[in-house]
Design a binder for these strands. Structure first.
Lengths: 255, 255
DNA sequence: TAGATTGTTAATCGATTAACAATC
DNA sequence: TAGATTGTTAATCGATTAACAATC
């Protein structure tokens, strides 16, 4: 049947697609809002609209979890909240450590939505000795020297890195050595980790650049055919023939 | 040939895949680091390692931009930095407005990497009258009442939303009305925007939940076959037959 | 029963990857 | 020329979507 990527009992070779996993939190959020309004049931169409996806995708996503709906009726909100929470592992407590308590680290520590769903800021860690003991969001900052002990003592398996880029890999290595197996990286660096450790990154700069790419296209919508270089490009070290994106035309470059 | 999704001159029906666009900033970052170390050329293999992708993917990505490498030699670092920058639209100036100057908004305003690549924090906007005039990261906060004028005066086309979730949609609507066509949303809300407006979201909570999902799987690696529910799930409003993920087995639920 | 809505199928689309001919 | 490395092809994989039979 399914090729068991992990060495799990074959009975459980479920394998929910990554794209689906990434959407479950969206569904959960929409469902939680409905739950707070005491809405008892919801159709795939309604829920999909609330989550900002199309309903076929939502139903397909849910089909990986099981058959939790009722034909002709829809989905029971409370029941689905529970099932998705359980699937995501939110019925348990996840102590999180934040390393690097600068502006961003402090902002995240103060971020309310953190605690809401199973996550708990268990420790704040910083390399600056002057910060040690200072309370941030009601939690005393601890020094990096004690990182290993802090992680163990609190049973932290998820670490958040908000250090400057130069320190990120080293912090990452120490977190992993201490037993952390999931890392959320806010530093603009590619982290290398051993197999079995998950890294996700959040990168403001990358997001802006992606937006700028599309923004540029929009601006050019009613502009001339090809954007003539607004600045002189640097010369190539290797003088060689080269083709621009349009195929045979020589690239627009000063000789 | 290519189905022109946008109404552009057919000559320019290029269409770089989204997945490629999302990786260009990564390549650019790696190339910039090489440039700073004065490395003249780099092979796809080396650059791919630095960017954390595989080299076939990198070469395919670059092939959408044009033929910018030299067989047997590699890529000229400076030349490629320029080409990717241009492709991403970073050779121009992008004034950005941040709306919602709380912990996170202030942290972003202070974030250095912002200015580095074409982006410039042109305005900070907040709904709290008490904040008006207060300098954050050297920029005076302005009041929401003037949002429309601020956007126009500064030629802002990219807006960053760091308000509480309840205010996000309203702020979004106002930004769009004022002419903003790209939005980076840090509020945990689904924003609805008219066609032609791009929204990207950054969501700490979602990232953590995705990590928790995988973390849970890791923990269960050598655990019993199926995770028995640690808590009692809520009853379904609709009493109906239902199937768990394993197919025919009735779901594990208290009667 | 008639109407509504799920769960699933199958077609399509887009992204990844290995392999290798082209060519510096 | 021999060695290195790109740019491209083609196979594969995963994700999306419309459509509809199953069924409440």
């Amino acid at each position: 049947m399914a090729t068991g990527r992990t060495h799990r009992p074959a009975t459980r070779s479920r394998g929910i697609p990554e794209a689906t996993v990434a959407r479950l939190p969206l569904y959960l959020r929409a469902l939680t809002a409905l739950s707070e309004r005491s809405v008892p049931t919801v159709s795939s169409e309604e829920l999909a609209t609330a989550a900002g996806v199309n309903s076929a995708k939502l139903r397909k996503d849910f089909s990986y979890l099981g058959s939790y709906g009722t034909r002709g009726v829809g989905y029971d909100v409370e029941y689905l909240v529970y099932q998705i929470s359980r699937e995501l592992g939110l019925t348990q407590d996840w102590p999180v450590a934040i390393v690097g308590i600068g502006n961003l680290g402090a902002a995240l520590a103060n971020y309310g939505g953190f605690a809401s769903r199973g996550f708990r800021v268990a420790a704040l860690i910083d390399a600056d000795p002057a910060m040690a003991g200072t309370p941030v969001a009601g939690i005393a900052v601890q020094h990096t020297d004690d990182l290993d002990r802090i992680i163990s003592d609190n049973g932290v398996s998820i670490g958040v890195i908000t250090t400057p880029p130069g320190a990120a890999q080293q912090v990452c290595d120490r977190l992993v050595a201490a037993g952390v197996t999931s890392i959320l990286n806010f530093a603009p660096t590619v982290l290398s980790v051993p197999e079995g450790v998950d890294v996700r990154k959040v990168d403001l700069s990358i997001e802006l650049q992606i937006l700028a790419f599309h923004e540029q296209r929009k601006a050019g919508e009613d502009a001339p055919v090809e954007g003539e270089d607004p600045e002189a490009p640097p010369m190539r070290a290797t003088p060689a023939s080269r083709k621009g994106p349009d195929g045979d035309m020589p690239a627009v470059m000063p000789a």
